[in-house]
Design a protein around this nucleic acid. Structure first.
Lengths: 213, 213
DNA sequence: CCTACCGATCGGTAGG
DNA sequence: CCTACCGATCGGTAGG
């Protein structure tokens, strides 16, 4: 692995864990095993390093995208599972990606708007259009907001992975829970699935004996 | 407003916008119009100030809670709307609350686990139990994970409000969109509503003519 | 609640 | 890719 790649990896981990501003060049250099000015030799300044880390994540996701649109599944549910699976895998295999993306969305909104516009929105619109075709065909909830639906799904996957370390012990009942995050993500996907494909039925009310409060 | 309250308010804004570590005592003091050591006179050190800001948010939310359980609505949908409405209002009226909570979940997971255990989990369990009663009565999706569902909903509301500034322009079509966040939150609530109360129906497939990819 | 000050750490530069 | 160094800023203290 090249020095540049080692620096990018260490920077991703440090910036995801503490935030890009709080991650010092010194601590990144220590993780790589070089001196601080050597980082600036490769990336000019800290701002350039941060941008390189963020665009690297976006570029890697865009490598995954072709798999989504060339999937063998041609029905709506198959395509949904395909998208959901790639999305969860991409951020689960490297939770630092989720943490850093969420931090940057909060820390540098103007810059992230530009990145989202360039790297993310095009394929979100493609998926939203497919959802909308399903809506018009009557196989998807009629009152769905396709583009908002896709963003909310992505936000939920990334957000739950990003705060996983606060949740790991929080929801478990017994002595150990192998993976609370997986449990949360399963519920995210179930929620999305049902709200996509369930045609509205008459909702009902809880049994009357819980009106004790 | 007391000096202490003024400091808490300024600290919430600064810490939400930049993160608790990146928010300097100097900038907080400037916003209040006092000198830096005066903050330490009131709060001892920065760590104590940060804890006070976080617990203040949790305490204020716990003031809202009674309204949830004393609501006049006795049916399941009415109770859901009541919870959703309070949740959205609480964080929408002060987005800094959502931003800071999300940041702290990422920055200090061990400490936040303790806070969640003490302040949040009790009422989440109460709501989850009510969802579970609906599930057993057959009026709520049978494969729902009640406690995970509630957390995912909260995470989604907070998460979408926290990154709102990155989204405001991102999803709009025309020249202006009065409130993209409201659009996202509406979709969050629709999703949650459907996944709670829609009894599984046979899903279908999109119309065949989108198999062109 | 202030002035004056402290050591530590930050991003970055000079020069090789 | 390194050593040596810079001004700026950080949280915090002394003393009033």
């Amino acid at each position: 692995m090249s020095a540049r790649e080692q620096i990018l990896e260490a920077a991703l981990n440090q910036m995801a864990a503490r935030g890009a501003d709080a991650a010092s060049l010194q601590s990144i250099a220590d993780e790589v095993g070089i001196k601080k000015p050597s980082i600036l030799y490769h990336f000019g300044n800290k701002e350039e390093l941060r941008k390189a880390v963020v665009t690297d994540i976006l570029a890697r996701w865009n490598e995954v995208l072709p798999r989504l649109f060339l999937t063998t599944a041609t029905d709506a549910t198959g395509r949904f599972e395909s998208l959901a699976n790639e999305l969860v895998s991409f951020f689960s295999e490297c939770p630092s990606r989720a943490q850093l993306m969420f931090r940057e969305l909060m820390d540098r909104p103007a810059q992230m708007r530009a990145y989202l516009q360039e790297y993310v929105r095009p394929w979100i619109k493609m998926i939203a259009q497919e959802v909308d075709r399903g809506r018009q065909a009557g196989s998807v909830q009629s009152n769905i907001d396709p583009e908002a639906f896709v963003w909310v799904l992505i936000n939920s996957v990334i957000g739950n992975i990003a705060v996983a370390s606060s949740m790991t012990t929080e929801l478990r009942e017994g002595d150990r829970d192998p993976d609370t995050v997986q449990r949360l993500l399963r519920e995210v996907l179930r929620t999305a699935r049902v709200s996509l494909f369930s045609i509205t039925t008459t909702s009902s009310q809880l049994n009357p004996n819980n009106a004790e409060a």
